[in-house]
Design a binder for these strands. Structure first.
Lengths: 166, 166
DNA sequence: TTTTGTTTTCAAAAGTATTTGAAAATTCAA
DNA sequence: TTGAATTTTCAAATACTTTTGAAAACAAAA
């Protein structure tokens, strides 16, 4: 496999994995392309590298900026906008966790709290209440853990403390 | 909110969250329904509770059994099959992690390893190689961590050691 | 101001995923 | 066996998501 093939394969796989995770495949491919690009790229370059339409290129770059994974670079005397990806994996993962946590886990927690309200007058027979109580406890913990993860710095992940868990 | 509303809301939210995570919404709703059911249910009961077709009910129950989240119960002298969900949240989460890890993370790791082959003759200029090296390191760690998580028992999650990470 | 290069929008088209439901297969009891 | 109850399958229909591309908006230069 040469470098060109390797890049192709990487972009393809990154897109594939993303779509398993409920993320638009093209958005992930744009992300992969920018991740491995030596230099910032224009929306036009992304469009022709990936053989996608202008609109698609523009929309997905924009979405990646919303996620905080891609940034804009302006150059003196040039009209075009250049884009580059955040390459520090720790920052990338943190950004993704924060985004998904906020958009997905938190609304679920909110619903669980609302439902918890009915627990007061919950008859013994209701396994419902027990399950909700369990899930709340669990997702609460998960939420705290993610918060900790996000606050922690990159060295934490490889720290001896963390290794103890193995 | 009464219990009936609560159940409805729970099923709805569980389905919503699942579809954000690339899991079939109906499958998650069937899971939610069985999670909060006091007794095992038949495919027919699931079908009418959720207002879905017979085929849909059957297929999703089957998928949940493949994931190891739902089990079959046979009753003496009855033709019908009853189904119930695993209710221990720790087991549920472990099961989900194992499944997704195997289906999604591992293939990605395999691709990264293949790509790593090109690193040997990787020119200095290629930021590609650096990014791939980083991602490999990171996902390798993530993979190990998930393995540890899966092997660990449920007490681990709430253990004092774990709390230190906060 | 007008022209020109560039980005953005969005309705329609194409592509995917899910659901339905009727028919086929299976299973068990009579 | 046969027949009734039950489960499974899968092609077609429906619903949902993504992509396209041309037109509109915008912004700098002439």
């Amino acid at each position: 496999m040469d470098i060109k093939e390797g890049k192709q394969k990487f972009i393809e796989s990154w897109g594939k994995m993303a779509s398993d995770w409920g993320i638009n495949r093209t958005m992930a491919q744009v992300h992969a392309l920018l991740l491995i690009a030596a230099e910032p790229m224009t929306a036009d370059q992304v469009m022709s590298e990936l053989n996608i339409s202008r609109g698609n290129s523009n929309m997905n770059i924009r979405a990646l900026m919303d996620w905080g994974l891609v940034h804009k670079q302006l150059r003196n005397g040039e009209r075009k906008e250049y884009f580059y990806a955040e390459k520090d994996m720790w920052v990338v993962v943190r950004q993704i966790i924060m985004n998904r946590k906020k958009r997905e886990l938190e609304p679920m927690l909110k619903v669980l709290d609302e439902i918890a309200g009915v627990e007061n007058n919950c008859p013994e027979s209701e396994s419902f209440c027990a399950v909700v109580r369990d899930i709340r406890k669990f997702s609460g913990k998960a939420n705290q853990t993610l918060d900790a993860l996000v606050k922690a710095d990159s060295t934490w992940f490889g720290s001896p403390l963390f290794s103890l868990l193995r």
